[in-house]
């Protein structure tokens, strides 16, 4: 095999890391950060190093080749990996370590919501998709529910498309609409942070750009962490970008830095399209 000077096998280049602390750069408080985070599938360590800090009301993108651990990292943040993988270390949400077993994961997930790779609306009406979690938590006031449906569908920029068919099955929507419905569903319970796991990977370009617009609007109210393997997408919408490779976050910086002058060689190679 031919080893190019920049390959991960040369001169220990992959120990080279550059992780910035956004709180030193901007004036945004940090709402979520990980310390000493390790993730294991059985005996297999999937995340070795990935300590990042996510600033409030910003979009942070996690990029990297498939299998780099970016999704695993993201899913650990609201403990969706519980029962699937073992996660050690601290996950500080506004200073509270939510990776402790005593933490009520259900309450925590109401603050740290998640949207998945494949749109997963429930086989219920659009209206019921949005109100389902609220109803389960005892909200019964019809007017309040109507209001939440309207605001969250508007926030997810899908209100105009579905306002006349709220009672229709959510499964009848197009893929892109379904995904925005899922965002509306997540937003309806008024979370603090939204985690998105490659939300556009199953969508066509038009739907994707609509979704991106939506995310840019949502950032006014929410802190967003998004995994994407579409580098252009990261460049278009995110404020910060982390580059993952082989279970490590190698570089984390303002997005413009990552895409114009990355400090880590591997990031440079990835952003330039040399691998991944």
């Amino acid at each position: 095999m031919l080893i190019s000077p920049s390959s991960p096998y040369s001169n220990g280049g992959w120990l080279e890391r550059n992780i910035v602390d956004p709180s030193l750069k901007g004036q945004q408080p940090i709402v979520l950060e990980t310390k000493q985070l390790h993730v294991y599938y059985g005996d297999n360590e999937a995340i070795h190093e990935g300590d990042l800090k996510f600033p409030e009301h910003r979009i942070s993108a996690l990029i990297g080749p498939s299998g780099s651990g970016k999704s695993t990292y993201l899913r650990s943040l609201n403990r969706m990996n519980d029962g699937i993988a073992r996660v050690t270390g601290e996950i500080l949400y506004r200073g509270v370590d939510i990776n402790r077993p005593e933490i009520d994961v259900y309450k925590m997930r109401r603050r740290i919501g998640m949207v998945f790779q494949r749109p997963n609306p429930f086989s219920k009406s659009i209206y019921d998709n949005i109100t389902f979690a609220l109803k389960r938590r005892g909200v019964t006031d019809k007017r309040k529910l109507d209001e939440v449906v309207e605001t969250s569908l508007k926030q997810a920029a899908i209100w105009d498309e579905v306002k006349d068919k709220l009672k229709k099955s959510a499964l009848a929507l197009s893929g892109g609409q379904q995904q925005r419905l899922c965002i509306a569903r997540a937003v309806a319970i008024k979370p603090d942070i939204l985690l998105l796991d490659e939300p556009a990977s199953a969508l066509d370009p038009v739907s994707t750009s609509k979704l991106e617009e939506t995310l840019l609007q949502l950032k006014e109210d929410y802190t967003i962490v998004i995994v994407t393997h579409n580098m252009q997408q990261a460049a278009r919408i995110s404020d910060y970008t982390a580059f993952f490779n082989m279970g490590r976050a190698l570089e984390y910086d303002e997005t413009s830095q990552i895409f114009t002058s990355p400090k880590v060689q591997l990031t440079n190679n990835y952003v330039a399209g040399d691998f991944g």
């Binding site: 969706m80 998640m114 429930f122 979690a133």
Partner: peptide, 24 residues
């Protein structure tokens, strides 16, 4: 994905199963 959808909304697995998975 349907289970994850329920869990990500802060619902318990039981609620998710009873109100989403079983109907599906």
């Amino acid at each position: 994905e349907q289970r994850e959808g329920g869990l990500a909304l802060g619902l318990s697995k039981w609620e998710t199963v009873l109100h989403i998975i079983v109907p599906a």
